[in-house]
Nucleic acid binder design. Structure first.
Lengths: 239, 239
DNA sequence: GATAATAAAATTGTTAACAATCCATATCCA
DNA sequence: TGGATATGGATTGTTAACAATTTTATTATC
């Protein structure tokens, strides 16, 4: 398992660092849904006490990336198709509200900032650095939320963003190219620039529905595979 | 402080029970915003170990009812006016989405259930049991969320509902009658019955804006009181 | 008397040892 | 053999003692 985290035995990590690394391992699919997360194992791996791992696992459980069961420890969450659908449906609602709030108050400085972010995204994409491009495309959504200035909406969007990769990976595997399309981000900024709430929301929803539809499609296919329905523990998922 | 919780020394409490009681004390205004929550004190009070109190405080912090500061313990949260506004604005968004989702799928059985809830609310109100009436009026909102069937939306609404009393109390004190008006709940159910999404949302927003406007009004008054602006620790708030 | 430095007390944070629970394997009995 | 029942090891959960930090009280100095 140590291969999953890229640690050396004698380094020590802070709580935040441990959290970040486990989260990243989950989201990068290096830890499959259902994988058992043993406390001592992780503690030794990161060179920290078990108590710290305990805290981290509880925090991860709270953001729905990990499932904690009393007396039976923690496993990587295994979100259902339904949960994925609910998550995306809610995301459309939240992102729409963010756009509406943002457009009511945006200034030229903010618009300039968004323009810069689009450029950086484009640059990363063109230079073939797809990991960086993905990261920047997520940042774009986060930045809209920040600029909108509603802390509660921002928290909820961040929660959803944190959970999204696991939902996608759990149901699409590595098949899908799930990166946001850059030209759609541009279209959103265009609409914001024109203060056109309706257009912005339309583009955003289209944008989000693209990914969503892939999951939907995949889950329909899965349902025709009767064997996998009867045997919930797929061999793909280490237990 | 023991008077705040209504405990006797020799009873023991489960984690859930301790959580519920502290939460209730905060929401009932028996513990003012800013009040220090000392671990040993609470542990002795409930007859539990300090570790359990620790867990509970962390959970309360996560739902924004308690503020935890490293090495300095926990205090009852002191939500800002801004946070209250953001919370209400988000609530309108979430409740609207719930109504839209619900109307698309509601059946006669659900409608019957809602009708029964309205009756019970009305009954409690008429019989003068205002605590019960308040509780049932909150249940009404929760029930709409449950029936809508989107788990993520439901979670977010419950989060907001949990935080709302503290926001109201922190800025309105005990001045306000904040109970939902029963006839507005009836109007919402009417609109749902007619599958009229727009009307339902309009009534709901009106409903929520009523409470919100009271906070707004109060906070404007506060701002004219310069002394309280300069001295953030009001004498009303125990520290 | 106000301010700064110091010491003591109170409070939070951590940990290692212990307890309780779960899980896989072995054992027993029909 | 099949299936229930013990058994031991692994794992999670709890706690009491200790450590670190903050807060309060005391003293010293101007």
């Amino acid at each position: 398992m140590s291969a999953q985290f890229d640690t050396t035995a004698d380094t020590v990590f802070s709580e935040e660092e441990v959290l970040r690394r486990i989260e990243q391992a989950v989201l990068d699919h290096r830890l499959a849904p259902g994988t058992k997360l043993k406390e001592v194992q992780l503690a030794e791996l990161f060179g920290v006490k078990r108590g710290l791992i305990r805290k981290v696992l509880t925090r991860l459980a709270h953001s729905s990336l990990v499932l904690q069961t009393p007396n039976r420890g923690a496993t990587v969450a295994r979100p259902s198709v339904k949960e994925g659908q609910d998550l995306f449906a809610t995301r459309r609602v939240i992102e729409s509200a963010i756009l509406e709030t943002l457009i009511a108050k945006i200034n030229d400085l903010d618009l300039e900032q968004l323009g810069k972010m689009l450029q950086r995204e484009q640059q990363a994409y063109l230079s073939g650095d797809s990991a960086q491009a993905l990261s920047l495309s997520v940042d774009f959504h986060r930045e809209l939320a920040r600029m909108a200035g509603n802390g509660v909406l921002e928290t909820y969007l961040n929660d959803i963003i944190r959970r999204t990769p696991l939902v996608i990976l759990a149901h699409l595997g590595d098949e899908a190219e799930n990166r946001c399309r850059n030209h759609e981000h541009e279209a959103i900024v265009d609409a914001i620039r024109r203060r056109d709430v309706k257009a912005a929301i339309t583009v955003m929803n289209h944008h989000l529905l693209q990914i969503e539809s892939k999951i939907q499609h995949k889950s329909e296919r899965s349902h025709t595979d009767l064997a996998s329905l009867l045997r919930p523990e797929s061999i793909l998922h280490s237990e």
